Amino acid sequence: MNPDFQKRLDSVTGYKDSRQKCADEVLENPELFPELVQLCFQTSNKNISKACWVLELVCYEKLEWIQEYLDFFCPNIKNLTDDGALRSISKVCLLLTIFHFKKAAIILSENQLQQITETCFDWLIKDTKVASKCYAIRALHLLGKHYDWVYPELKIILEKDYIHHSAAYKAVGKEILKKINHQK
Rank of each mutant, 00 (worst) to 15 (best):
M1P: 14
P3I: 07
Q6N: 10
K7R: 08
R8T: 06
R8H: 13
L9F: 12
D10K: 07
S11D: 10
G14Y: 02
Y15Q: 07
Q20Y: 12
D24H: 05
V26H: 04
V26P: 08
F33N: 08
P34Y: 11
E35Y: 12
E35T: 09
V37F: 13
L39P: 13
C40I: 01
F41C: 10
Q42A: 14
Q42R: 04
S44K: 12
N45G: 01
K46V: 15
K46M: 04
I48F: 15
A51C: 01
A51H: 11
C52K: 03
W53I: 03
L57C: 11
L57M: 12
V58W: 00
L63H: 06
Q67E: 03
E68M: 09
E68N: 11
L70D: 04
D71P: 00
F72M: 13
F73C: 08
C74V: 01
C74E: 00
C74G: 04
C74F: 06
P75Q: 02
N76S: 14
N76Q: 07
I77E: 09
I77F: 09
G84S: 14
A85W: 01
S88H: 03
S88A: 12
I89Q: 11
K91E: 11
V92A: 08
C93R: 01
C93E: 03
L95K: 02
L95I: 15
T97P: 10
H100V: 09
K103T: 14
K103D: 13
A104P: 05
A104L: 15
I107H: 14
L108K: 00
S109H: 12
N111I: 05
N111R: 10
N111Y: 03
T117L: 02
C120E: 09
F121A: 02
D122M: 05
D122N: 11
D122T: 05
W123R: 04
W123Y: 13
I125M: 11
D127F: 15
K129T: 04
V130P: 05
A131Q: 14
C134T: 06
A136M: 01
I137V: 12
I137E: 08
R138W: 01
R138L: 12
A139Q: 08
L140M: 07
L143G: 08
G144I: 01
G144R: 00
Y147H: 08
W149D: 08
Y151W: 11
Y151P: 03
L154Q: 07
K155A: 10
I156V: 14
I156M: 15
E159T: 01
Y162R: 08
I163D: 15
I163H: 13
H164G: 04
H164C: 07
H164S: 05
H165N: 12
Y169M: 03
Y169W: 09
K170E: 14
A171D: 05
A171F: 00
A171C: 00
A171Q: 02
A171I: 00
G173R: 00
K174L: 13
E175Y: 08
K179H: 11
K179C: 11
I180V: 13
H182R: 09
K184L: 02
